[in-house]
C-alpha cells in the first residue's frame, strides 16, 4: 500500500507537527516502506487467533479507591509558563 504526500500532510496536521518539504518527501517514502512490511504481515493466516491488545501476556492490576494524592499545585505550576488564580493559562480557545 502506497502512502501519498497528502496523507502524510494530514497526519502531520492531526499530530500538530510542522514538517518541511524535504521531510514530507522522505516521510512519504519511509511510511510507504513500513506499509510494505505490514502488507507482508497481512498475508499471514490469523484465522482463529484473537487480536492482541497488548504485547504482554498479563492482565491489568487495579488499585483501591482511596485518595493517595495531596495538593501539590504550587510545585506542579512551577513548571507552567503562565498561571493565575490557580489556573493554567493557555492561548485563548474559542468554540
Amino acid at each position: 500500500m502506497a502512502i501519498d504526500r497528502s496523507t502524510v500532510e494530514s497526519v502531520a496536521h492531526l499530530a500538530r507537527l510542522s514538517i518541511s518539504e524535504d521531510e514530507v518527501r522522505q516521510t512519504t517514502e519511509q511510511i510507504t516502506a513500513i506499509m510494505g512490511l505490514i502488507d507482508e504481515m497481512q498475508a499471514v493466516d490469523t484465522n482463529g487467533i484473537d487480536p492482541l491488545a497488548h504485547p504482554l501476556d498479563a492482565v491489568q492490576r487495579l488499585r483501591a479507591d482511596e485518595v493517595t494524592e495531596s495538593n501539590q499545585r504550587e510545585k506542579l505550576q512551577n513548571n507552567a509558563p503562565a498561571t493565575e488564580d490557580g489556573l493554567f493559562l493557555v492561548p485563548k480557545v474559542i468554540e
Binding site: 494524592e69 495538593n71 490557580g86 489556573l87
Partner: peptide, 27 residues
C-alpha cells in the same frame, strides 16, 4: 461516584479550588 480518579489517587470531590485535585498523572 468514586472517591478518586479513574487512573490516579487524586480526589474527585466537587467544588475544590482550581487544580488542587489534579496530580501528576492527571496532568
Amino acid at each position: 461516584a468514586t472517591k478518586t480518579k479513574i487512573f490516579s489517587g487524586a480526589s474527585t470531590a466537587f467544588g475544590a479550588e482550581a487544580n488542587t485535585q489534579a496530580c501528576a498523572v492527571d496532568l
